[in-house]
Amino acid sequence: MPLYYFHIRNGSDLEQDPEGSELPNLDSAHAEALIVARELAGAIPEFNNDTVIEIADMNGKILLLVPFSEAAKLGSVEQG
């Protein structure tokens, strides 16, 4: 299974994921990033709609950006 890294960028700050997660594909990584973004946005006030999760492959290539705002929109649709 591919290894995906979930780095968190908040403005100029970057917190890198040192371990990564094995997931079957990029769609699964995207779904996981949305879950993580929703959890972190609720727990860490500094993380807001400008914060993004950068999904990277094992070579460090950024494959997808997942804005926390996307997770917030999804959360409001699920609650509505």
Rank of each mutant, 00 (worst) to 15 (best):
A29I: 04
E22H: 13
V66C: 12
G20R: 05
E15C: 03
L14F: 12
G60T: 07
G11W: 03
S21R: 06
F68V: 12
N10M: 06
A33P: 00
F6E: 02
L14V: 12
L65V: 09
G11H: 04
Q16M: 05
G80P: 00
G75K: 03
E15R: 01
N49T: 14
N25P: 03
L3K: 13
L14P: 04
L65A: 06
E70A: 11
N59Q: 10
G11K: 00
N10D: 11
E32P: 00
E15K: 06
Y5K: 00
F47T: 09
N49I: 14
K61S: 09
L74T: 07
A41E: 10
A56K: 02
E70V: 06
N59A: 13
E70T: 10
M58Y: 15
P45I: 15
T51H: 08
E78K: 10
I35L: 12
I35F: 06
L64Q: 14
M1T: 12
A37M: 02
E39D: 07
L34G: 00
S76P: 00
L23V: 11
L74V: 09
N10C: 07
L63M: 10
M58G: 08
S21E: 13
N10R: 01
V36F: 07
P18F: 13
V66E: 05
Q79D: 14
G80V: 05
A29V: 11
R38S: 03
L40S: 09
E32I: 06
N59E: 14
E15V: 10
G42R: 03
E19F: 12
V66W: 03
V77F: 15
V66S: 04
T51R: 01
A41F: 07
N49L: 04
V77C: 01
A43C: 08
G42Q: 09
I44R: 11
D27M: 08
E15H: 07
L65P: 00
L23G: 03
I55Q: 02
E22G: 06
G60D: 14
D57A: 05
V77G: 01
E32T: 08
A41V: 10
A33Q: 11
G60L: 04
H30A: 09
A37E: 05
R9K: 15
L74D: 05
S76H: 12
V52T: 14
G75S: 14
E78D: 11
A41P: 00
